[in-house]
Simulated scan of single mutants.
Amino acid sequence: MPLANIPFANPHAAYAARKEAILEAITRALDSGYYILGSEVEQFEKDFAAYLGIAHTSACANGTDAIELMLRALGVGPGKAVFTVSHTAVATVSAIERAGAMPVLVDIDPVHYTMCPASLEQAVQHLVRTLPQVTPAAVLPVHIYGHPCNMDALAEIAARHNMRLLEDCAQAHGAQYKGKMVGTLGKAASFSFYPTKNLGALGDAGGVATSTATLHNEVCALRQYGWKERYISAIPGINSRMDPVQAAILGVQLTHLAEDTAARIRIAGVYTSGLAGTGLCLPQVAPWAKHAFHLYVVQCKERSAFMQYMQEHGIGTAIHYPVPVHLQPAYAGRVLCAPKGLPVTEQIMHTIVSLPMFPQLTDAQVERVCTTIQAWAKAGA
Rank of each mutant, 00 (worst) to 15 (best):
V41K: 13
G63N: 01
Q122N: 10
T57W: 04
T130H: 02
D107C: 04
V106H: 02
L127V: 09
Q125R: 14
A99W: 01
R72G: 00
A13V: 12
A21L: 12
K19H: 08
L105Q: 01
P103R: 04
C60L: 07
S39V: 15
A59T: 03
P103Y: 00
V104E: 05
L127T: 02
A91G: 12
L23T: 05
I67M: 07
G75R: 10
I96L: 01
A118W: 03
R18Q: 10
S119I: 00
D109L: 06
I67K: 08
A29R: 12
Q125K: 14
T114L: 07
L23W: 07
L30K: 14
T130D: 01
A123M: 03
I67T: 10
T88P: 02
P132Q: 08
Y113F: 15
G77I: 05
K80W: 07
T64G: 11
P103H: 02
G63Q: 05
V111G: 04
A138G: 07
T135K: 15
S32E: 10
A17V: 07
V85F: 02
K46E: 11
P136S: 04
R129P: 04
T88Q: 10
H112Q: 12
P78N: 13
Y35C: 09
P117Q: 06
A81C: 12
I26L: 09
V76A: 10
A118G: 06
L37P: 12
E68W: 00
L69A: 04
V90A: 14
A89I: 08
L71C: 01
S94F: 08
H12E: 15
T84A: 03
V76M: 09
K46A: 13
V104T: 03
R72C: 03
V134I: 15
S86C: 00
A16R: 13
I67N: 08
R72P: 03
Y34K: 08
H87Q: 11
F83A: 04
V128C: 09
L37C: 15
A99T: 00
V106Y: 02
D31G: 05
G38Q: 15
E42K: 14
P11T: 12
T130S: 02
A73I: 02
H56E: 11
V134E: 08
D109I: 07
V82Y: 06
V111I: 14
G33D: 08
K19N: 04
V111A: 11
M102L: 15
A118Q: 12
L71K: 01
A17Q: 11
L23R: 12
I67P: 06
Y35M: 13
M102D: 07
V82N: 06
L127E: 05
F48P: 05
V104I: 06
L120H: 02
N10A: 15
G79A: 13
A73Y: 01
A123Y: 01
S58L: 07
T84M: 01
V41G: 13
A73G: 10
L69R: 06
A95T: 03
V139T: 00
D109Q: 09
A21W: 03
V90H: 06
D47Y: 02
S94Q: 13
A55D: 13
S58I: 11
A14I: 11
F48M: 08
A49K: 09
A25V: 08
Q43S: 13
L74F: 01
P110Q: 09
A99C: 00
G75M: 10
K19F: 02
D31Y: 07
L23Q: 11
Y51K: 12
F44V: 10
E20P: 00
